[in-house]
């Protein structure tokens, strides 16, 4: 996979290059700001671009650059990195695109295996959401018993959390050691209990529906 990086922290940028090379990927560009990355992506063949959210141009150069890249080169996958697990950044990321895009924490993705897995999923067209953030979204706010989330069983909450991470049915089944059929049954139950539209055949539409619902439930209670 051909990868381009924009990260203004030199030490972390060098670490990313080493991790990518260890994972067998080719780093075709490595810069410290969004404008330089856009120049690389415009002129070079890139499969996935990795962007720090907080980099020049300030304040959130990663987000503005990702939007420019998606508009100019929609086939390029985008992985946005941050030190903050913010639903604010998540929603901004999803406004840029709902396919071939990811948002992860820097320290969590700083490993060969997890970085390779994240890039593979993005290149395959998936949305990849930081598990820490997905977990927080799924947590029942203030343990409220009147929250629709309180109606879900523990296993259904696990399925919801993995859906919010952008996992496919097969990946959820593998994670929970159950069959895909069982996962489908849990998903149907979750959607019914939360009042979400049942027809979510497109994977990215399902992830968006789940994240939008969870985000709204956090705000409105």
């Amino acid at each position: 996979m051909k990868v381009a990086i924009a990260e203004d922290g030199a030490l972390f940028r060098e670490g990313l290059v080493l991790l990518l090379e260890a994972a067998g990927h080719e780093v075709v560009g490595c810069v410290g700001d969004g404008d330089s990355l856009f120049g690389i992506v415009s002129t070079t063949d890139v499969d996935v671009a990795i962007l720090d959210i907080r980099m020049p141009p300030e304040p959130d150069g990663g987000l503005t650059t990702a939007a420019r890249i998606r508009a100019a080169k929609p086939d390029v996958g985008l992985l946005l990195l941050s030190h903050y697990a913010e639903t604010h950044y998540l929603m901004k990321t999803l406004e840029i695109g709902a396919e071939r895009i990811g948002y992860r924490l820097k320290e969590r993705v700083a490993g060969v295996q997890v970085l390779a897995d994240t890039l593979d999923r993005i290149a395959a067209g998936e949305i990849v959401i930081e598990p820490v953030l997905a977990k927080r979204l799924v947590q029942n706010p203030s343990e409220r018993t009147d929250s629709p989330l309180a109606k879900l069983t523990e296993r259904e909450l696990d399925v919801l959390r993995l859906m919010a991470e952008g996992r496919s049915n097969a990946a959820i089944a593998k994670e929970l050691f159950v069959s895909v059929k069982v996962v489908e049954k849990h998903i149907a139950s979750v959607f019914a209990k939360l009042g979400l539209p049942a027809d979510q055949t497109m994977h990215h539409r399902r992830v968006l529906a789940v994240l939008t619902y969870l985000r709204a439930s956090k705000i409105d209670g």
């Binding site: 203004d8 972390f12 991790l19 030190h83 320290e107 490993g111």
Partner: peptide, 21 residues
């Protein structure tokens, strides 16, 4: 805190993983 401490620690996490690999 972000640019010097947190980013530096994430870079150390990456280096540690490379040693493990």
């Amino acid at each position: 805190l972000h640019d010097e401490v947190a980013v530096g620690m994430s870079a150390i996490a990456a280096q540690l993983d490379l040693v493990a690999v």
